[in-house]
């Protein structure tokens, strides 16, 4: 049994959106190559999930069930899937590029002598796969060689979840052989840090600052712009990593997801982990000295220039307009 196998991820009993996107990607790849798309879910009890998936997936849906898969561990998931794929010899295996997949898929691929082509944004004839390099400044095209399955993970937002082709899958189950001693990590329950005091999600305007600001001492420049607009201030990860602004003001995959009417990105390059947190904003303005910065790919309006000149000028112009 070969074909394209899509591994779906669930949290709190639901399949996540990015997994449906991966399913779309897998179905499109299968269609291009004349293969069948199959899906996989893993857990201790998967009936409810299987019902959710069978409304959308075709091919075969395999429930990989074992008591030791109740909570995610890299050892449990990679061993279980190694056994499944050993039995099924897939041509392609497609994952959503989540933090969980990042944690075990490279090890799974290595067990089979393969390499994950990770964070894929598209594919073309060949097939060849595109992924970003240099933080989104360039695209790389990859080709898989060798005998084993080709492992892929797809970037959040790169494929449309709505494009999933519904049909009724044949249901199968697979029981891996797992021993408690093989699970070497003991995960605790997920938690959040102490209550967040700023809810950027409900802000109607946000001025967000990135490493282009260079030093903490320069922050008042963007704070002035934010107060002239009446906007909340937010930041990219390095600003919060440095402790220049509190973590709760971080926008992105590991921070908050925002969708204000206006998002002004100042000195932010536009790495995918930042973009996923803000690309739903109604209007995006980017101020960056690099005309090729990836942030311009999502911006409605752009100013290419030195933020130390542009930001004060903008603050003045806004103040004047408001008078």
């Amino acid at each position: 049994m070969s074909g394209v196998w899509i591994v779906l991820e669930h949290r709190e009993g639901r399949i996540g959106r990015i997994s449906w996107e991966a399913l779309t990607a897998g179905q499109q790849l299968a269609a291009q190559l004349g293969l069948t798309a199959h899906s996989v879910i893993l857990g201790a009890q998967t009936e409810a999930l299987a019902a959710e998936v069978s409304a959308k997936a075709g091919g075969k849906l395999t429930s990989v069930e074992h008591a030791l898969l109740a909570t995610y561990t890299a050892d449990g998931f990679s061993r279980a899937l190694e056994q499944l794929f050993h039995a099924e010899s897939p041509d392609y295996v497609v994952f959503p590029h989540t933090y969980q997949v990042r944690d075990y898929a490279p090890a799974l691929a290595a067990k089979l002598g393969q390499v994950l082509i990770g964070d894929v944004t598209g594919f073309g004839e060949g097939p060849v796969f595109t992924r970003q390099i240099l933080q989104g400044r360039l695209n790389g095209t990859y080709r898989h060689t060798g005998g084993g399955p080709c492992f892929l993970s797809v970037q959040s937002g790169a494929f449309r979840a709505e494009a999933v082709e519904p049909s009724t899958p044949e249901i199968a189950s697979f029981t891996p052989t797992l021993e408690p001693a093989q699970i070497r990590t003991q995960p605790g329950a997920p938690f959040r840090e102490s209550a967040q005091t700023v809810d950027l999600g409900s802000a109607s305007m946000i001025v967000s600052v990135g490493r282009g600001i260079k030093e903490a001492d320069n922050l008042p420049l963007v704070q002035d712009l934010a107060s002239a607009l009446g906007a909340e201030i937010a930041a990219s990860r390095p600003i919060c990593d440095n402790g220049w602004l509190p973590m709760e003001r971080q926008v992105g995959s590991s921070g908050q997801t925002v969708s204000p009417k206006l998002y002004v990105a100042v000195g932010i390059s536009g790495a995918i982990q930042h973009l996923v947190g803000m690309k739903g904003s109604q209007c995006i303005v980017a101020i960056n000295k690099d005309p090729d910065a990836p942030i311009f790919e999502v911006a409605d309006y752009g100013i290419v220039g030195d933020l130390f000149e542009v930001v004060p000028a903008l603050t003045e112009a806004i103040k004047a307009a408001k008078q």
Binding site: G113, Q114, V115, L116, I117, V128, Q132, I133, G136, L138, N139, G140, T141, Y142, R143, H144, T145, G146, G148, V285, A286, P291, D292, P294, F296, E297, V298, A299, D300, Y301, G302, I303, V304, G305, D306, E309, V310, P312, A313, L314, E316, A317
Partner: peptide, 30 residues
């Protein structure tokens, strides 16, 4: 196993309106 065949500048998909000119003019236009 995975070969990087070539690299390229990403294709622009969205047409960003770039506001040109010196800082003051760009700010006023924005």
């Amino acid at each position: 196993v995975a070969i990087l065949e070539h690299i390229a500048q990403p294709q622009k998909q969205k047409s960003t309106q770039i506001l040109p000119g010196p800082a003051k003019d760009a700010a006023a236009a924005l």
